[in-house]
Design a protein around this nucleic acid. Sequence first.
DNA 1: CTGACTTGCCACGGAATCCGAACCGGAGCG
DNA 2: CGCTCCGGTTCGGATTCCGTGGCAAGTCAG
Lengths: 155, 155
Amino acid sequence: MAPRSRPLVLDDVSKAIIEQLQTDGRRSYSEIGKAVGLSEAAVRQRVQKLTDAGVMQVVAVTDPMQLGFYRQAMIGIRVSGDTTAVAEEIGAIPAVDYVVLTAGSFDILAEVVCENDDDLIDLLNKRIRGIDGVQSTETFVYLRLHKQFYNWGTR
Amino acid sequence: MAPRSRPLVLDDVSKAIIEQLQTDGRRSYSEIGKAVGLSEAAVRQRVQKLTDAGVMQVVAVTDPMQLGFYRQAMIGIRVSGDTTAVAEEIGAIPAVDYVVLTAGSFDILAEVVCENDDDLIDLLNKRIRGIDGVQSTETFVYLRLHKQFYNWGTR
DNA sequence: CTGACTTGCCACGGAATCCGAACCGGAGCG
DNA sequence: CGCTCCGGTTCGGATTCCGTGGCAAGTCAG
């Protein structure tokens, strides 16, 4: 949770390792080593370094729909005053899984995951719009998730 | 890439397994089994089923910044005609990692990952705005990613 | 140049894990 | 009752994980 580390240049081998784990996070070190031309131990050390440095993390990602969260939305938020403070507060809400400060007609974009429409309404009215500094919000209800990639690493 | 398997109810044990893998995608089956009260083989079978069904996938997620992608943005797109077709075309662009059909003042939201501003400009002008049916776009350049969670599974 | 230090990789071996297959018990059904 | 399906457990051999030690190639100071 603390990516406090130097730039940490990534050579081609590390990129290759990341690509391997992007396609399958459970691939064995020796298999990766075979693919990138390194020994098992070397791969292991590099993966450890990469995760320690916060460059990469291996996790399970899920389909919210199939877990009972039937309503997702992106919320554009206009703020007066310190955007960071507001972002902090919004990020503290459990239903919010993604917060980013932006330039443009919104100051903050927040993605939320709710079980149903009632939860979304409550979230908006009772939580987000009540935050000090929030001027206005605009909600984009998700109709269909069409693409979701995690392998933007090296192209 | 094809979540073609509808019903598949998730009991508490499967949810617990998912939570384990959400905190660490490389945790061993036996360790998970110990945590959720199942044998190693049973955990393995369930994980296999869950991934096959598209409920969950274990992957490496990376910090784009540390991989040389210094410019991210969300692009709101207004479309005339079939939104699905446009979404399909946008999703085919490598720099686009996230596409969702929405209700609201945008028809499509697309997150893009670029190396720099020039790439972003080219992406917008030469790729996205050239797609048939795209009426207008609005770009929200990311200033700072503030929160990003993958563990929305069960709360 | 040289010696101390650092860094990254490989080799190795014991412990742990993975993984396929066999087995088992309960539920549903004719 | 016999049969099948399902999900769990057990089991054993192959594989992987992981700590450790060694080695070669820098780097730096004197």
